[in-house]
């Protein structure tokens, strides 16, 4: 039994226009120390699926399915029970470090409350632990800076604080939702490197949510490609990068800018837009944008095992 088993996870949102089916059945397993990337465009449901297992959906959202963490189904827990896992066993850091920290409380207050609550440390111990954690994420002069407020930190520093805060209780899983999207490129690399190191030193499993296949390779072992709320391809980094099977994955890879590309070749964007989640067309949801679509695509393909754990949701035969 894997540490985390997610089965048929579904998320919907009630809107005045009808129900938006943001996530329509996602499955994956996560073992201790794993690093899984969930890749997809904005609106593909990658963030919402993770928020659902953290119990953080917006008020109009609802989730179903199973998410067994060490045997307990997170989806069935009351908010009080879930709080024993959130922050302690499973931590999550968010896309926008500028707004994800409370601007009215200093860093110390925001960090020590986590360990005081989950581990019952007293204020002094909690503070010492928080300073140690800040040092681990290379915040300079943490004894002084811990007293400062979030706006006195730069964007990259804030995301480091978020990472430090997430790791305070040595969680089994760290979910990082596009942690570097809002940051400068150089800072992005630093944060990614930081997470890679922390994973190695503490055996924390990482779930990296991103739309950028470029950052995945250095950090993750396996990739889950999500499109319109469903898994369309799953495999190791090597399988996804070198033998992508789903036309959507191939499109994503082709749209990553490359230094070795032929001059003037331009970027290969995937034409069209993701389907309307309020009113999904029948059949394969990528059909309208797919250059290789044929008659069979009128029917939704199943997720097929292509061998070696490589899964793809496409009617095309591997030879093609």
């Amino acid at each position: 039994m894997a540490m985390l088993e997610v089965r048929n996870l579904q998320v919907g949102f009630d809107t005045p226009e009808g129900e938006v089916q943001a996530v329509r059945g996602i499955d994956f397993d996560l073992e201790a120390g794993d690093a899984l990337a969930i890749v997809g465009e904005s609106g593909s449901g990658k963030t919402q699926s993770m928020l659902a297992l953290m119990g953080l959906l917006a008020e109009n959202g609802h989730a179903s399915g199973e998410a067994r963490f060490r045997g307990r189904d997170l989806m069935k827990l009351s908010p009080g029970e879930l709080n024993q896992y959130r922050g302690a066993k499973i931590a999550m850091i968010f896309q926008d470090p500028m707004t994800s920290l409370n601007p009215y409380l200093n860093i110390e207050k925001q960090m020590i409350e986590v360990v005081m609550h989950h581990q019952g440390l007293d204020r002094r111990e909690a503070r010492a632990h928080a300073i140690e954690m800040l040092r681990a994420v290379r915040i300079p002069d943490p004894e002084q800076r811990i007293r400062q407020y979030p706006h006195e930190y730069s964007g990259g520093m804030r995301q480091r604080v978020m990472v430090a805060m997430g790791l305070l209780c040595e969680p089994d899983i760290l979910i990082a939702d596009e942690p570097t999207t809002a940051l400068d490129v150089t800072v992005q690399a630093q944060i990614n490197q930081l997470m890679a190191e922390l994973r190695r030193s503490s055996n924390t499993a990482i779930v990296l949510i991103t739309h950028d296949l470029g950052v995945v390779a250095g950090l993750c072992d396996r990739v889950l490609v999500v499109y319109a709320g469903r898994v369309v391809e799953y495999g190791t980094v090597e399988q996804i990068y070198y033998q992508p099977r789903h036309p959507y994955t191939r499109g994503l890879l082709a749209s990553v800018p490359r230094l070795d590309a032929v001059r003037g070749a331009g970027l290969n964007a995937i034409p069209g837009n993701p389907p309307n989640l309020l009113d999904l067309p029948a059949g394969c949801s990528f059909r309208q944008r797919c250059a290789e679509a044929f008659e069979a695509c009128g029917e939704e393909p199943a997720l097929r095992d292509l061998g070696d754990g490589h899964l793809s949701r496409c009617h095309l035969e591997p030879e093609q």
Binding site: L82, N83, F94, L101, P103, E113
Partner: peptide, 14 residues
Amino acid sequence: SNFIRTARAKGLPE
């Protein structure tokens, strides 16, 4: 706001 989501993600009681 996002920082309330962060606080909830930390597992603090409501």
